[in-house]
């Protein structure tokens, strides 16, 4: 998802009789659905895994501004421009809430940003795909934020208090994101044949990358077991992906668009839609840095950071000078 392939800082799951008393007490709190708070004792690996997951989630919010920010100056109307601007601004806020949650674990925001820029931390694979035209912007709100919502609604129940509270706040803002995207796509799907074709094309191109957001199959997701036991993760990748497909197919049908791939069929027996796998080799390749936009995205982040340095330093110097003057009075 916004955090894919998070390596749990511990391999396998620790059996109860191998836990220390402190660890057992900690696990009991989790099992009782108590929230863990910043100053509470926690296993080092729980802390490390959380920092990785929340950090990657934060990076995804921030990098996720780039494909949409790309279209702010070219939105088709002033109203759409204002809406997109507000949506992208929300994403900056989401990044902030999440960096703040990570900071309660003792990791500074500057450090997380440094790890991102050095390529040592990731962000969601979805943002390494380009937004080629205005239909893509509608499809991103509809499908990408739609997929993010499925994941983030589940994460509201995550065991770490600050992460859970950030998710609650984010979820309140996300439905605006999905709805403005669907609304933009509706206008195209119900517009001229050429507009409808653009909407179809955007759906076709973004479908599999959106499916990849949930990460590999549970059977290939070796790290999730301990994360699930600690309730850092709440639902499995496959569960969340199925939920996304089931909720999205009727939305496609309402638009009168064709399904994006031939494997999608209602399965009466399961009570769910069947669907095809995305190309997992492509997914791994994008994660490794070889997607269509990886280099651009990271370069844009690095440039923003470097170009902003004089502002950050200048404001800090001004604040220190003012404080010194006040102290001298």
């Amino acid at each position: 998802m916004y955090a894919q392939l998070i390596k749990t800082a511990r391999s396998g799951i620790t059996p109860r009789d191998e836990m220390t008393d402190q660890e057992r007490e900690f696990q009991d709190r989790i099992d009782r659905n108590e929230k863990i708070e910043p100053k509470d004792w926690m296993p080092d690996d729980y802390r490390a895994t959380l920092i990785r997951q929340i950090g990657q989630h934060a990076h995804s919010e921030v990098v996720g501004q780039l494909p949409e920010g790309n279209w702010i100056t070219r939105a088709p109307t002033l109203e759409r421009k204002a809406i997109l601007l507000a949506k992208v601004q929300d994403e900056a806020g989401h990044g902030l809430y999440l960096y703040s949650a990570a900071e309660t674990l003792g990791e500074s925001r500057d450090e997380l940003v440094r790890l991102l820029h050095e390529g040592r931390m990731k962000y969601s694979s979805i943002f390494n795909y380009p937004t080629l035209n205005w239909a893509d912007i509608g499809a991103v709100g509809w499908l990408v934020d739609g997929a993010a919502i499925v994941n983030q609604v589940a994460l509201q129940r995550t065991s770490y208090g600050p992460y859970s509270r950030a998710m609650v706040r984010i979820c309140k803002e996300e439905s605006f994101h999905a709805r403005q995207g669907y609304h933009a796509i509706m206008q195209m799907a119900f517009g001229t044949p050429a507009q409808k074709q653009m909407a179809q094309d955007a759906l076709n191109r973004l479908w599999f990358p959106a499916m990849m957001m949930f990460g590999p199959h549970d059977s290939d997701s070796t790290h999730s077991e301990q994360s699930m036991a600690w309730k850092i993760k709440v639902k499995s990748n496959d569960e969340l992906r199925q939920q996304f497909v089931d909720q999205t197919i009727p939305q496609i049908e309402y638009l009168g668009l064709d399904l994006p791939e031939p494997g999608i069929k209602w399965n009466e027996e399961r009570g769910h839609y069947d669907f095809s796998d995305p190309d997992w080799d492509e997914f791994m390749d994008v994660i490794r840095g070889n997607g269509p936009c990886n280099v651009d995205r990271l370069a844009a982040r690095q440039k923003a950071w470097d170009d902003g340095e004089w502002v950050r330093d200048g404001l800090m110097a001004h604040a220190k000078k003012k404080a010194a003057k006040l102290a001298a009075e």
Partner: peptide, 24 residues
């Protein structure tokens, strides 16, 4: 309490809080 943020001084903290935590 609604959350945290980074700011160089109190004035900027309040301005940033306005942007981040009172958008709606």
């Amino acid at each position: 309490h609604v959350g945290s943020l980074h700011a160089p001084d109190a004035e900027m903290a309040i301005k940033n809080a306005r942007d981040v935590y009172t958008r709606r």
